[in-house]
Design a protein around this nucleic acid. Structure first.
Lengths: 195, 195
DNA sequence: CGCTATCTGAAATGAACACTCCAGTTGAGA
DNA sequence: TCTCAACTGGAGTGTTCATTTCAGATAGCG
């Protein structure tokens, strides 16, 4: 393909890797404003070197976030093949919350950046989640009076939010998923519906 | 009190008001980076005038956001006195989502600002929400196996998230509150619990 | 080894902002 | 109407950054 990797000097390759690791480290830390300067310091390199290795700061961040996101995507694909769809969904939601709890600071940093790779990964996650919900729905584990697309948006956004919450104790995540799961289960009693 | 308003010239008062309105207008618009320059243009004033009227840009934004938040706080207090706690909570959640849907862009802008007044209002909202949940709980409308504080965090964050979702069709908000309400209701069947 | 294309990073550049200065304007009391 | 302190806003000032430049260092081939 067009991925024609022109040969690069060993030190350039090494420094590129260092820059990526440094960016990942900073992305996970809270409270830090991520500047090229800061990444350079963390990597023990000059700022110019870092920018040159990726073209722009945005491209560097994009690559770093993509890296961080990959394990999560793997888990998502895994969840899609597990036998019990409801359990898989539940487990994945908890994974998602864990991930966001560790990384929500990152999301804040990303707002004004041009990060196409990351956008792509996010969309992949969204697709996988949609798949999980479809499976759970077909298995009868999720009420059918709500559009699966709506459920997907709901869960995706909500997980982000819950992880974001200042405290984020594990108990919160667990309780939260419980409430969601109970609310999403087919409701036997349409209850005091009218209200 | 110490609110000793030293007399100010009529034009100064008018311009202060203009600046506040301009800031509110921009805060609600999406995609706009809010600079003092932009607010000044919107208000038809010079940038210097605006900064001087409030001391700092942050103070201006703080005042504007506070203004925008006030009606919502009023609704919250209102909800606390309605006869049916469950219905009041539900209605307020929908209000909250509506508000956030209209204003979430704003929240993004606020991340790096010094906005004590706004922080205070937010905390007031949180308190009110906690109150509503307590009332609904006492009325037996909310399951008791989950800490009310957790429920509060849950709802507060979640509402923010759901409003944030790109689409935000009203249907989404409605369905979402339904799912939450069903999930938060006392669960008769501990169900096929183990799972 | 020696040579040179590739790399490096300190310093320069330039853009975006919040905030300040000051010469000129204006509201409003006498 | 006159006067002047309070106001205004265009033109700075100082910062914070991403990105570029370029003189010097170095990987790695012959």
């Amino acid at each position: 393909m067009s991925t024609a990797e022109q040969p690069r000097r060993a030190d350039a390759v090494r420094n590129r890797r260092l820059a990526l690791e440094a960016a990942k480290t900073l992305l996970v830390q809270s409270g830090v404003t991520i500047t090229v300067e800061a990444i350079a310091r963390q990597a023990g390199l000059g700022a110019a070197t870092i920018v040159r290795a990726f073209g722009t700061k945005d491209a560097l961040i994009d690559a770093a976030v993509t890296d961080l996101l990959d394990p999560l995507i793997q888990r998502a694909h895994q969840a899609l093949t597990e036998p019990d769809p409801a359990a898989a969904l539940r487990r994945f939601l908890l994974d998602l919350i864990d991930f966001q709890a560790a990384h929500w600071v990152m999301s804040e940093q990303l707002t004004h950046l041009q990060i196409p790779l990351t956008a792509e990964r996010r969309s992949a996650l969204h697709q996988a989640l949609l798949g999980m919900i479809d499976r759970a729905r077909e298995a009868g584990a999720i009420r059918t009076d709500i559009d699966p697309a709506v459920v997907t948006v709901m869960l995706g956004e909500v997980v982000y939010a819950i992880a974001r919450s200042s405290a984020t104790p594990p108990a919160l995540a667990h309780d939260f998923v419980t409430v969601l799961a109970d609310g999403l289960r087919p409701q036997s009693s349409t209850g005091p519906a009218g209200r």
